[in-house]
Design a protein around this nucleic acid. Structure first.
Lengths: 223, 223
DNA sequence: GCCTAGGTCCCGTCA
DNA sequence: TGACGGGGCCTAGGC
């Protein structure tokens, strides 16, 4: 199944072999994975220096770059998609330079030992679906307002008002306007402030009673 | 340089070989990299399903998990450090289950084709230094307040006030309190609101003139 | 443990 | 194009 065209693996390549493979992979927009001893410079929105150590480098076909240390969820250095690459040998060192414009950012990775290198073209058309987002909760409320309160009628959703957005907008059984702000997780004072701004702006606009409801699994101690 | 102990590579392993290598790598807390055809389920703070496709799986020695598609900076599925793993063969499918407690989250990856697999122990003691952060800007201002204004004396930094934090806190040449909010990049209305809340709270507390200064490379059109 | 704020956040959306 | 807010955000620092 992994045919030569699809995936190329080099174990302990020389720097020359690696340099060749890197150039080929980058020019053909193949995915590149490398493991070895490297150091990294970054300059752009900030500046960083990573001293030598053993890491994993991944360059994807869209020109994104990841440098991963042996621990941690996040890459220690990276570049978002759209980079342009330069690579080659500088003495005994294999360098890869990833340049992003807008904003201008340059990432440089230098390898003096390469333990492993793989270049590949992966086919991935699989659909990805994520559930239980704020949007899903909003739909549920739209479909069944009684989840919040009996007699509640939904008028609009994501209706724009002065300071920003309202998630759901309705009228309760006593004819008062109701503004519902949905937070999928613990709501902090940010959310409370946001909602109170909505309510104030609507109260000023309509001159009648307005209620704000915050829908969240939990609320911090600023209730 | 890559000795057998340090890195093990299997090209196109059988599922049985792969299952064995995965179990061994996970139990010995080695880093695992796999490329192949897989699908992924996640359930925890949200829920997600990723249909079959060719991807890269990385499990690090601290128990973090990354599933990367051929494009994009971000992993499509992941698990933060600290996971506990279960793996094995279920019929023709190799599964890896990563469980996190607190919050309870489960990630399951299923492979039906494995193109290659690498298990390794990487040594990375390299220091990482990042410059030009908000912290760095604060230090610069602390050391040389005249950067902001002549006659400015710094009193405190990150002093707590009612609504949250103040970055730097001082007195200007006319004896007025000065609150300095530092943003490393373009400041939006968020930052302005934050600062005005600081100023209000201090004004109420001290009953005297308070000035707010927003330090940022650019400010959005809400100045 | 919860809560808060920053991030080279990234990313989508919309004016 | 910039501005704004969400994210399974993650991560570090207080309390």
């Amino acid at each position: 199944m992994p045919d030569k065209e699809m995936i190329t693996v080099l174990e302990a390549p020389t720097r020359e072999e690696a340099a060749e493979a890197v150039k080929s992979a980058l020019s053909r927009r193949r995915i590149l994975m490398m493991v070895g001893n490297c150091w990294v410079n970054y300059q752009g929105r900030a500046r960083s220096i990573l001293n030598p150590g053993e890491r994993i480098l991944i360059i994807k076909e869209d020109g994104s770059v990841l440098v991963h240390r042996p621990r941690g969820y996040e890459p220690v250095n990276w570049q978002p998609p759209g980079c342009i690459f330069h690579s080659g040998l500088e003495g005994d060192v294999l360098f890869i330079k990833a340049v992003r414009r807008k904003p201008r950012e340059v990432l440089q990775v230098f390898f003096d030992k390469i333990y492993f290198l793989a270049a590949m073209s992966l086919l991935d058309k699989g659909e990805f679906s994520l559930h239980a987002s704020e949007e899903e909760m909003q739909k549920a409320i739209m479909n069944q307002p009684s989840l919040i309160e009996d007699g509640l009628r939904i008028i609009a959703y994501e209706k724009k008002v002065e300071p920003g957005f309202v998630d759901v907008y309705g009228v309760d059984r006593d004819g008062r306007l109701v503004v519902i702000e949905i937070k999928r997780r613990t709501a902090g004072k940010e959310a409370v402030l946001q909602l109170s701004r909505y309510v104030d702006s609507l109260r000023g606009e309509h001159g009648r009673k307005v209620r704000g409801i915050l829908v969240a699994p939990k609320i911090a101690r600023q209730a």
